[in-house]
Protein backbone atom coordinates (compact mmCIF):
# COMPACT_ATOMS: atom_id res chain seq x y z
CA UNK A 1 0.00 0.00 0.00
CA UNK A 2 1.30 3.41 -0.96
CA UNK A 3 1.35 6.12 1.61
CA UNK A 4 3.75 8.78 0.49
CA UNK A 5 4.57 9.58 -3.07
CA UNK A 6 8.29 9.01 -2.80
CA UNK A 7 7.57 5.46 -1.63
CA UNK A 8 10.26 5.77 1.01
CA UNK A 9 9.79 6.31 4.68
CA UNK A 10 10.01 9.62 6.47
CA UNK A 11 13.31 8.55 7.95
CA UNK A 12 14.80 7.60 4.60
CA UNK A 13 13.75 10.98 3.24
CA UNK A 14 15.49 12.69 6.10
CA UNK A 15 12.28 14.16 7.51
CA UNK A 16 12.33 13.93 11.26
CA UNK A 17 9.11 12.70 12.77
CA UNK A 18 8.30 14.61 15.93
CA UNK A 19 7.34 12.57 18.96
CA UNK A 20 3.91 14.24 19.05
CA UNK A 21 1.81 14.94 15.98
CA UNK A 22 -1.33 16.92 16.66
CA UNK A 23 -4.11 17.31 14.10
CA UNK A 24 -6.44 20.25 14.66
CA UNK A 25 -8.73 22.32 12.46
CA UNK A 26 -12.31 23.24 11.62
CA UNK A 27 -14.83 20.59 12.57
CA UNK A 28 -15.50 18.22 9.69
CA UNK A 29 -12.17 19.06 8.05
CA UNK A 30 -11.02 15.44 8.25
CA UNK A 31 -8.78 15.47 11.33
CA UNK A 32 -9.88 12.10 12.66
CA UNK A 33 -9.48 10.29 9.37
CA UNK A 34 -6.02 11.76 8.83
CA UNK A 35 -4.94 11.05 12.40
CA UNK A 36 -5.88 7.37 12.13
CA UNK A 37 -4.22 6.95 8.73
CA UNK A 38 -1.14 8.87 9.84
CA UNK A 39 -0.71 6.70 12.92
CA UNK A 40 -0.98 3.58 10.78
CA UNK A 41 1.65 4.94 8.44
CA UNK A 42 4.01 5.66 11.35
CA UNK A 43 3.43 2.18 12.75
CA UNK A 44 4.26 0.58 9.40
CA UNK A 45 7.48 2.52 9.33
CA UNK A 46 8.45 1.10 12.70
CA UNK A 47 7.41 3.84 15.09
CA UNK A 48 5.88 2.78 18.40
CA UNK A 49 2.80 4.96 18.26
CA UNK A 50 -0.42 5.52 20.20
CA UNK A 51 -3.52 7.40 19.03
CA UNK A 52 -5.08 9.86 21.45
CA UNK A 53 -8.63 11.09 20.89
CA UNK A 54 -8.93 14.50 22.52
CA UNK A 55 -12.26 15.30 20.89
CA UNK A 56 -14.62 16.49 23.58
CA UNK A 57 -17.04 18.13 21.14
CA UNK A 58 -18.30 15.69 18.56
CA UNK A 59 -20.31 12.68 19.70
CA UNK A 60 -20.52 11.05 16.22
CA UNK A 61 -17.87 9.79 13.74
CA UNK A 62 -14.86 9.43 16.04
CA UNK A 63 -11.52 7.63 16.18
CA UNK A 64 -13.39 5.02 18.22
CA UNK A 65 -15.02 3.92 14.93
CA UNK A 66 -11.55 2.73 13.82
CA UNK A 67 -10.72 0.95 17.08
CA UNK A 68 -10.76 -2.52 15.50
CA UNK A 69 -8.46 -1.53 12.63
CA UNK A 70 -6.06 0.12 15.06
CA UNK A 71 -6.12 -2.91 17.34
CA UNK A 72 -5.28 -5.20 14.41
CA UNK A 73 -2.13 -3.16 13.89
CA UNK A 74 -1.37 -3.20 17.59
CA UNK A 75 -1.89 0.56 17.92
CA UNK A 76 -3.29 1.63 21.26
CA UNK A 77 -6.22 4.07 21.25
CA UNK A 78 -6.67 6.35 24.22
CA UNK A 79 -10.14 7.87 24.19
CA UNK A 80 -12.97 8.86 26.46
CA UNK A 81 -14.72 5.89 28.00
CA UNK A 82 -17.94 7.57 26.86
CA UNK A 83 -16.98 7.86 23.17
CA UNK A 84 -19.73 6.41 20.92
CA UNK A 85 -21.93 5.88 23.94
CA UNK A 86 -25.25 7.49 24.72
CA UNK A 87 -23.64 9.85 27.18
CA UNK A 88 -22.61 13.27 25.95
CA UNK A 89 -20.00 13.92 28.59
CA UNK A 90 -17.01 16.04 27.56
CA UNK A 91 -14.39 14.11 29.51
CA UNK A 92 -10.88 12.81 28.92
CA UNK A 93 -9.40 9.77 30.64
CA UNK A 94 -6.46 10.14 33.01
CA UNK A 95 -4.43 7.93 30.64
CA UNK A 96 -4.29 10.92 28.32
CA UNK A 97 -1.40 12.27 30.38
CA UNK A 98 0.70 9.31 29.22
CA UNK A 99 0.84 10.78 25.73
CA UNK A 100 2.64 13.86 26.96
CA UNK A 101 4.57 12.27 29.83
CA UNK A 102 5.70 8.87 28.51
CA UNK A 103 8.39 9.97 26.09
CA UNK A 104 9.25 6.44 25.02
CA UNK A 105 6.30 6.39 22.62
CA UNK A 106 5.20 8.43 19.65
CA UNK A 107 1.68 9.81 19.78
CA UNK A 108 -0.81 11.06 17.21
CA UNK A 109 -3.36 13.35 18.81
CA UNK A 110 -6.79 13.97 17.29
CA UNK A 111 -8.01 17.35 18.57
CA UNK A 112 -11.68 18.36 18.61
CA UNK A 113 -12.99 20.79 16.01
CA UNK A 114 -12.55 24.56 16.08
CA UNK A 115 -11.52 26.60 19.10
CA UNK A 116 -14.21 24.92 21.21
CA UNK A 117 -12.63 21.50 20.61
CA UNK A 118 -9.08 22.76 21.04
CA UNK A 119 -9.78 24.00 24.57
CA UNK A 120 -9.14 20.46 25.84
CA UNK A 121 -5.62 20.64 24.49
CA UNK A 122 -4.81 23.64 26.68
CA UNK A 123 -4.17 21.62 29.81
CA UNK A 124 -1.54 19.53 28.02
CA UNK A 125 0.06 22.58 26.37
CA UNK A 126 2.64 23.25 29.13
CA UNK A 127 3.99 19.67 28.86
CA UNK A 128 4.01 19.82 25.07
CA UNK A 129 5.82 23.18 25.03
CA UNK A 130 8.38 22.00 27.62
CA UNK A 131 9.29 18.92 25.64
CA UNK A 132 9.25 20.91 22.39
CA UNK A 133 9.14 17.86 20.14
CA UNK A 134 5.81 18.27 18.39
CA UNK A 135 4.23 19.01 15.06
CA UNK A 136 0.87 20.72 15.32
CA UNK A 137 -0.84 20.31 11.98
CA UNK A 138 -3.71 22.49 10.75
CA UNK A 139 -6.12 20.40 8.67
CA UNK A 140 -8.09 22.33 6.07
CA UNK A 141 -10.77 21.33 3.57
CA UNK A 142 -11.48 24.29 1.31
CA UNK A 143 -14.81 22.69 0.34
CA UNK A 144 -16.15 23.19 3.86
CA UNK A 145 -18.56 26.12 3.97
CA UNK A 146 -16.84 28.15 6.70
CA UNK A 147 -13.32 27.62 5.33
CA UNK A 148 -13.75 28.26 1.60
CA UNK A 149 -10.84 30.69 1.43
CA UNK A 150 -7.35 30.98 2.88
CA UNK A 151 -8.47 34.04 4.85
CA UNK A 152 -11.36 32.17 6.50
CA UNK A 153 -9.11 29.19 7.27
CA UNK A 154 -6.48 31.52 8.75
CA UNK A 155 -9.11 33.00 11.05
CA UNK A 156 -10.03 29.52 12.35
CA UNK A 157 -6.32 28.78 12.75
CA UNK A 158 -5.85 31.82 15.00
CA UNK A 159 -8.92 30.94 17.09
CA UNK A 160 -7.60 27.40 17.64
CA UNK A 161 -4.16 28.69 18.63
CA UNK A 162 -5.72 31.03 21.18
CA UNK A 163 -7.86 28.24 22.67
CA UNK A 164 -5.17 25.54 22.70
CA UNK A 165 -2.32 27.80 23.85
CA UNK A 166 -0.14 26.18 21.17
CA UNK A 167 1.07 27.41 17.78
CA UNK A 168 0.61 25.47 14.58
CA UNK A 169 3.76 24.26 12.84
CA UNK A 170 2.40 22.97 9.51
CA UNK A 171 -0.64 22.55 7.26
CA UNK A 172 -2.42 19.63 5.58
CA UNK A 173 -4.60 20.33 2.58
CA UNK A 174 -7.40 17.78 2.93
CA UNK A 175 -9.79 19.41 0.47
CA UNK A 176 -12.44 16.95 -0.67
CA UNK A 177 -16.09 16.50 -1.56
CA UNK A 178 -16.42 13.03 -0.09
CA UNK A 179 -17.26 10.33 -2.62
CA UNK A 180 -17.62 12.85 -5.44
CA UNK A 181 -14.07 14.24 -5.16
CA UNK A 182 -12.19 14.44 -8.45
CA UNK A 183 -8.52 15.11 -9.20
CA UNK A 184 -9.61 18.46 -10.65
CA UNK A 185 -11.33 19.39 -7.37
CA UNK A 186 -8.16 18.83 -5.41
CA UNK A 187 -5.96 20.69 -7.87
CA UNK A 188 -8.41 23.60 -7.80
CA UNK A 189 -7.63 24.18 -4.12
CA UNK A 190 -3.86 24.51 -4.58
CA UNK A 191 -4.01 28.29 -4.95
CA UNK A 192 -5.88 28.69 -1.66
CA UNK A 193 -3.46 26.29 0.03
CA UNK A 194 -0.51 28.36 -1.20
CA UNK A 195 -2.23 31.52 0.03
CA UNK A 196 -2.66 29.96 3.45
CA UNK A 197 1.03 29.02 3.47
CA UNK A 198 1.87 32.65 2.68
CA UNK A 199 -0.54 34.06 5.29
CA UNK A 200 0.62 31.78 8.08
CA UNK A 201 4.26 31.36 7.15
CA UNK A 202 3.88 27.63 7.76
CA UNK A 203 4.90 24.81 5.40
CA UNK A 204 2.39 22.59 3.61
CA UNK A 205 3.21 19.24 5.24
CA UNK A 206 1.12 17.23 2.81
CA UNK A 207 -1.97 17.01 0.63
CA UNK A 208 -4.18 14.12 1.62
CA UNK A 209 -6.40 12.18 -0.78
CA UNK A 210 -8.53 9.06 -0.82
CA UNK A 211 -6.87 5.97 -2.26
CA UNK A 212 -8.75 5.98 -5.59
CA UNK A 213 -7.25 9.36 -6.54
CA UNK A 214 -3.77 8.67 -5.25
CA UNK A 215 -2.10 7.33 -8.37
CA UNK A 216 -3.47 9.99 -10.68
CA UNK A 217 -2.38 12.80 -8.39
CA UNK A 218 0.95 11.30 -7.49
CA UNK A 219 2.99 13.04 -10.19
CA UNK A 220 1.01 16.28 -9.94
CA UNK A 221 1.34 17.03 -6.23
CA UNK A 222 4.16 17.16 -3.74
CA UNK A 223 3.95 15.20 -0.50
CA UNK A 224 0.77 13.36 -1.30
CA UNK A 225 -0.68 11.36 1.57
CA UNK A 226 -2.98 8.42 0.95
CA UNK A 227 -6.03 8.02 3.16
CA UNK A 228 -6.30 4.28 2.71
CA UNK A 229 -8.68 3.65 5.56
CA UNK A 230 -12.09 5.25 5.20
CA UNK A 231 -14.78 4.47 7.69
CA UNK A 232 -18.08 4.80 5.94
CA UNK A 233 -21.40 3.55 7.17
CA UNK A 234 -23.80 4.88 4.52
Amino acid sequence: MLFYNTRVSFLERGISVKRLTLFAGHYGSGKTNIAVNYAMMLKKQGFDVVVADLDIVNPYFRTKDSEDELKKMDIELISSQFANSNLDLPSLPQEMYRTVQDKSKYAVMDIGGDDAGAVALGRFAPFIKDENNYDMVFVVNFFRPLSRTAEEAFEIMKEIEAASKLKFTSIVNNSNLGDLTTVKDILSTETEAEKLVALSGLPLKMTSVKESLYNELNDKTNNLFCLALQNKIF
Binding site: G28, N141, R144, P145, T149, N176, L177, L180, S188, E192
Partner: peptide
Protein backbone atom coordinates in the same frame (compact mmCIF):
# COMPACT_ATOMS: atom_id res chain seq x y z
CA UNK B 1 -14.34 28.27 -5.23
CA UNK B 2 -16.21 25.15 -6.41
CA UNK B 3 -19.99 25.07 -6.76
CA UNK B 4 -20.38 22.18 -4.38
CA UNK B 5 -19.43 22.27 -0.72
CA UNK B 6 -19.00 19.44 1.76
CA UNK B 7 -21.48 19.94 4.55
CA UNK B 8 -22.88 18.29 7.60
CA UNK B 9 -26.65 17.91 7.48
CA UNK B 10 -27.00 20.40 10.32
CA UNK B 11 -24.93 23.00 8.49
CA UNK B 12 -26.92 22.47 5.30
CA UNK B 13 -30.11 23.30 7.19
CA UNK B 14 -28.57 26.45 8.64
CA UNK B 15 -27.15 27.70 5.34
CA UNK B 16 -30.38 26.90 3.48
Amino acid sequence: MAEKVLMKGNEAIAEA
